[in-house]
Nucleic acid binder design. Structure first.
Lengths: 208, 208
DNA sequence: TCGCTGACTAAGCGCTTGCTCAGCATGGTG
DNA sequence: CACCATGCTGAGCAAGCGCTTAGTCAGCGA
């Protein structure tokens, strides 16, 4: 199985087309290295070699190793937030929209698991200013999910005692997929998305 | 709030009483450093300083930095497996036992979140032989949860279409707690455990 | 043909890393 | 007392790190 091109996972990646091809290759190499070994265990030589260049070339396109991480993390979070907003704002009642949200959120974390790992598990390595941006995006994602649960409760479609706890559980399930999912997993991302959608609706007390 | 002593979280920590106090202090310092910064971003000087010693003292008690991680990871996984087995083997029907399992699994991952982070998110840094041991323990944990779900289905208490997917979801929810839970979280570990127990039972189609 | 630019490399700098080792203080044993 | 094992430190080594620098070279407008 060839891996999904990063562009498909990051529709919001700024300047994805105008950016020099070499810069894009470095970004892709960084995603794969950070996901596999973690930020601190990845060397600039790893990234440059994987992109077919010398270490110095990295610094023509990016200010630092941390700047690469910051760009990956911000673009990844922005893409996730966009996905969540689109699913939550679509047609149907709260239950239908929640099913779609969980489905797509899960599919994304399974298919884009390399990006997902960097996005969710390398936050501590971000420079402070980049972290602030990313933290705000994460808060927005959680708020979006909470709002949808609240709408479902108001509409009488969900029965939830603690909205925040339920919202945590919903996002938690999806995020953790990027930790354990591998291309050797027996379920396809789409199957998993469908099943997780079902499980979450039950969890929220919806009749299914 | 003073943090829970490691001994409480690791009843199975081998030789916890016979081990020299200095070795124990190093272990505790390593847990905290690895949890906060990750294995690769933690230096042996960090650990030794936090334990009130010089870097060289570390090598009297442990063969290497990686050996410290291996010991933490193995002991942490063994403790988790013991917890899961005890909950699954206790009194009551499958639903009652599952509620107890999720409750305690969640409480552990919230209270022992520092150990939990090392255990769940630093696997890639383990030496190969230590990883093999730990991977076997993780498989046992998953099998234990799967078996309990199957028992519930057989007894007519659960309605689950894919046992493995459901088991993944159950363990996933608990594991991810160690990622996001902080001492500033609004819920106590016990509250969270109770609520997650409820959510999981609904997810498994139990009448609650 | 010319000078210029932008992408790139070879070499390596200053620093930090995991780890080692000779030696020191301490306290139990003959 | 001498003797030694134990637990530890100060100093430091070899390797590897992120990043910089000086310079090469293809492409291009004039």
């Amino acid at each position: 199985m060839t891996s999904t091109p990063i562009a498909d996972l990051w529709p919001t990646l700024p300047g994805a087309d105008t950016r020099p091809e070499a810069a894009y290759r470095l970004l892709q190499a960084a995603v794969e290295s950070f996901a596999e070994r973690g930020f601190h265990a990845t060397t600039t030589r790893d990234i440059a070699t994987a992109a077919g260049m010398s270490p110095a070339a990295l610094y023509i396109h990016y200010q630092s190793k941390a700047a690469l991480l910051a760009e990956i993390s911000q673009a990844g979070h922005a893409a996730t937030l966009a996905l969540v907003r689109a699913a939550a704002a679509g047609d149907g009642g709260p239950a239908e929209r929640m099913r779609r949200l969980v489905d797509q959120f899960t599919v994304w974390h399974a298919r884009a698991r390399t990006v997902g790992r960097v996005v969710n598990y390398e936050l501590h390595a971000l420079p402070e200013d980049a972290y602030a941006v990313v933290a705000a995006l994460r808060l927005d994602i959680e708020r979006e999910v909470s709002a949808l649960i609240e709408a479902g409760v108001t509409a009488g479609e969900f029965q939830v005692s603690e909205v925040r706890t339920a919202a945590r559980a919903v996002t938690s399930l999806g995020i953790d997929v990027s930790r354990w999912y591998t291309e050797r997993s027996s379920e396809s991302p789409e199957e998993l998305g469908r099943r997780y959608g079902e499980l979450v609706l039950r969890m929220l007390g919806a009749r299914v």
